[in-house]
């Protein structure tokens, strides 16, 4: 009897120790990656990053990539936020129990983890190829194409959060508004959206955090550009793609610049995800 008991408690102790060890492994990798990024990045952050462009790489500039990334991220949000919020509203308010709603919700979850490089290829085929052929190659890769690809990354995040956040709004609020004779669209836009506003905003920020770090969908949509441009139909540089190119380059000066860019992007994305986490934890949805 005691032999059996001893064996069981040994198994228990070993298993629990291993699970603690597993957590430690996860944390070690997190600290390792962040440490390496901070260590290499901090030393390389200089004022020239923000003032010089990548055309003269030895001057250590990233300004056109920073501007390009900001423009494309913003355009991507402008595309996917309205569509995503409206689609999420449809799922929560009109199709919460229909077969169509269930299908869309299901497929949205798949889009959420679909490989981003394929979404880049998709935009290449539907945006880059047609614009190239229509304009005889004057407009091929463009910042606009890049934003469409990024919008596809952000869209499912916004759809999902909006859907979930609206479902958290109590039904009594809907009934109260409807009983006053408010039409459905006004109820949705002026009552429900307001009630779920902070939740929906969280979704948009979450989408921004996801698409800001994406490289693969930009490679063959926005391509890259060594000069400063704000024109959405030009080839456009972006932080992740520039980092990718500089990392592939044998020149160690460029590696240092890539690390500086990597640190900037990581800080931006981590700050955003921490912000959303704080917004989430405070209260899921605020009803006032």
């Amino acid at each position: 009897m005691s032999a059996v008991y001893a064996r069981r408690s040994v198994v228990n102790i070993v298993a629990l120790t291993l699970s603690g060890l597993a957590t430690l492994i996860g944390l070690i990798f997190l600290v390792w990656i962040l440490w390496v990024t901070a260590q290499n990045g901090l030393g390389a952050i200089k004022l020239s990053l923000f003032t010089k462009i990548t055309a003269y790489a030895d001057q250590g500039g990233l300004s056109n990539a920073i501007v390009g990334s900001l423009i494309m991220d913003l355009m991507a949000l402008l595309i996917c936020a309205p569509i995503g919020v409206l689609a999420g509203t449809y799922l929560a308010e009109y199709a919460s129990s229909t077969r169509l709603g269930a299908t869309i919700r299901f497929l949205n979850d798949i889009l959420l983890s679909a490989p981003s490089i394929v979404l880049g290829l998709f935009v290449y085929v539907i945006v880059v190829i047609p614009t190239t052929e229509l304009t005889d190659g004057r407009i091929s890769f463009s910042g606009f194409a890049g934003s469409v690809a990024l919008a596809l990354i952000g869209l499912p995040v916004i759809v999902r959060t909006t859907d979930e956040m609206l479902q958290l709004v109590p039904g009594t609020l809907r009934e109260a508004a409807l009983s006053l004779g408010i039409p459905q669209w006004k109820l949705t836009m002026q009552v429900l959206m307001r009630a779920a506003f902070s939740g929906i905003l969280t979704g948009v920020l979450l989408a921004l955090a996801r698409l800001a770090g994406e490289t693969a969908p930009l490679l063959f949509t926005a391509f890259g550009n060594n000069f400063m441009t704000a024109h959405p139909l030009d080839k456009m540089a972006s932080m992740p793609v520039t980092i990718y190119q500089y990392t592939n380059d044998p020149n160690p000066t460029l590696h240092a610049i890539a690390w500086a860019g990597a640190l900037l992007i990581t800080l931006f994305v981590l700050a955003l995800s921490l912000l959303t986490r704080i917004m989430f934890s405070r209260k899921k949805v605020s009803y006032e």
């Binding site: 490289t215 980092i243 990392t247 690390w259 992007i265 990581t266 994305v269 981590l270 995800s273």
Partner: peptide, 9 residues
């Protein structure tokens, strides 16, 4: 949340 390009580097 860490961008995949950072994992690559």
């Amino acid at each position: 949340a860490i961008p995949s390009i950072i994992y690559g580097m």
